[in-house]
């Protein structure tokens, strides 16, 4: 019995020492979901930097979305995970009369001005839009690439655009088409097609809603493996003790 007690103790110590191994991860590159094939331009002398979809998405957000939408829950400085240059972020923040520690506020001074500039609908905050909007990321991806020419027989009010995917106002959408072919030059050479940009900016919005997803899944896997190991040892010990005590 004594020796069994000692065995238990050793198992415990082993368990504890394993726990103290710290896990440090950097979000690994996620596989882009149904990403259109990344096309690169003619090879240049410099190797092109490898960019994750959400990193390209941040560029789109900075240059396009943030001219109408806020992302109040995030700070400019939070983007350091996607844009490692603090100077570049500082520059972006300063352009918007803010600092790294300010929330990414709406460009409009008031809700009334925001509405007036967008055909009567206020551009919603994007902090958690990937989770809160009906249809989630899939909806966002399709809606952004969903603008179509106005079909015959449909008349649109001024500042209204035809988008059969959009949820509001029976396809008569108040957001002017944000994406245009080739509007951004991505440093990694990815061609800025509309489906490509819709995909990347959606990845960014998912990241903004839930930035720790990849780290979380990595730690979760590690924890489960560890518990499986510990559980195996304990199970063996338990069955041994069942016979001997």
């Amino acid at each position: 019995m004594r020796s069994c007690f000692r065995q238990t103790g050793i198992a415990f110590l082993a368990a504890l020492s394993l726990t103290s191994i710290s896990i440090t991860t950097r979000a690994e590159s996620p596989a882009p979901e149904q990403a259109p094939a990344t096309q690169t331009t003619a090879p240049t002398a410099d190797p092109l930097p490898i960019m994750r979809p959400e990193e390209r998405g941040l560029m789109i957000f900075q240059q396009v979305c943030s001219s109408c939408h806020s992302m109040e829950r995030a700070h400019y400085g939070d983007m350091i995970a996607l844009q490692p240059s603090a100077t570049a972020l500082q520059h972006w923040a300063q352009q918007r009369h803010a600092g790294l520690e300010s929330p990414i506020a709406s460009p409009y001074p008031s809700v009334a001005v925001g509405k007036a500039n967008n055909g009567g609908d206020y551009p919603p905050d994007l902090s958690h839009i990937a989770r809160t909007i009906r249809g989630g990321p899939d909806y966002i991806r399709q809606m952004l690439a969903g603008y179509r020419p106005v079909p015959p027989g449909v008349t649109l009010a001024p500042n209204t655009y035809y988008n059969p995917i959009a949820l509001t106002h029976h396809h008569k959408f108040k957001m002017r088409p944000p994406l245009h072919e080739g509007m951004i030059a991505f440093p990694d050479g990815t061609k800025a097609t509309i489906p490509q940009m819709a995909n990347d900016v959606t990845a960014f919005l998912q990241w903004a809603d839930d930035s720790h997803r990849h780290t979380r899944q990595f730690i979760g896997t590690a924890v489960l493996l560890y518990l499986a190991l510990l559980g195996g040892v304990l199970l063996a010990l338990w069955r041994l003790l069942k016979r001997t005590t």
Partner: peptide
């Protein structure tokens, strides 16, 4: 006696619970 049998049994259950 509680130790070691029930100590190990409880730890095993806690392990499953934590999983």
């Amino acid at each position: 006696p509680f130790a070691p049998f029930y100590v190990v049994k409880d730890c095993l259950a806690v392990c499953v619970f934590l999983a």
